[in-house]
């Protein structure tokens, strides 16, 4: 009798766990975030100002409670206007107000790992995005522009948290920090490095 009772308890427990896991939220989600990015290294020398013009958007599919894969894109605009200065050039000295811009549009495949089960109130995670980025470089010398547009490899590791609005809510608040690296070389830029801070929402879709 006791043995049977034990079995019932075990089964009940397993079923309960499965029920929670299966019903917390549907596997497919989309996310949109607002982004602020700080340039690092040679990118900072080129255009040193923190960029407040950025966003990211993505699509994710939960393979199980913790592992997800997805696709994402976004936009970040680095822009700095420097006071008039004289720049020595191989053909002369050029006095100019330089406006140095770089617009980045990544397209990346992502893989993410949640450190907790999806029924927790706070779900920390780590992810990595690997793909390409469109680099739109424009260095204005006064009204004259030196420009270059190219696609580059880009890798972006990320850590963040998802905070559901209630235990089984399909809507989650997201905050993350991402490091972006691209072996992009143009003018003064020897590599593209930035730290990107994002906040936004994640919506699970049926």
């Amino acid at each position: 009798m006791k043995k049977i009772l034990n079995w019932i308890m075990i089964f009940a427990g397993v079923f309960a766990a499965q029920a929670v896991s299966a019903q917390v939220r549907p596997p497919l989600s989309i996310d949109v975030n607002y982004s602020v990015a700080s340039p690092l290294g040679s990118l900072k020398d080129y255009s040193g100002k923190t960029s407040f013009r950025g966003w990211t958007a993505g699509l994710q599919y939960m393979l199980n409670d913790q592992l997800s894969v997805g696709l994402r894109t976004g936009f970040q605009d680095f822009n700095e206007k420097l006071p008039r200065a004289v720049y020595p050039d191989k053909l002369g000295d050029v006095s100019a107000v330089q406006t140095r811009t770089l617009q980045v549009i990544p397209i990346q495949a992502t893989a993410g790992w949640a450190f907790t089960k999806p029924d927790k109130p706070v779900i920390p995670y780590a992810a990595v995005g690997v793909g390409v980025a469109n680099m739109d470089y424009k260095k204005y010398w006064g009204q004259f522009v030196e420009s270059d547009n190219s696609w580059q490899f880009m890798v972006s590791p990320e850590v963040g948290v998802n905070i559901p609005f209630g235990q089984a809510s399909p809507v989650l608040f997201n905050a993350n920090v991402r490091y972006n690296y691209s072996p992009y070389k143009m003018g003064d830029i020897t590599n593209f490095n930035s730290v990107q801070y994002s906040v936004g929402f994640k919506f699970h879709l049926n």
């Binding site: 013009r53 950025g54 966003w55 936009f75 605009d77 822009n79 206007k81 008039r84 053909l91 002369g92 000295d93 050029v94 006095s95 100019a96 107000v97 406006t99 811009t101 617009q103 739109d136 424009k138 204005y140 010398w141 006064g142 009204q143 004259f144």
Partner: peptide
Amino acid sequence: FSGCGKDPLKDMTAEESRIYITN
């Protein structure tokens, strides 16, 4: 809100638009 970047030419004064090249 931020789909495309600022156009630097839009908020540039005539003075800022000029370059002086000497050699």
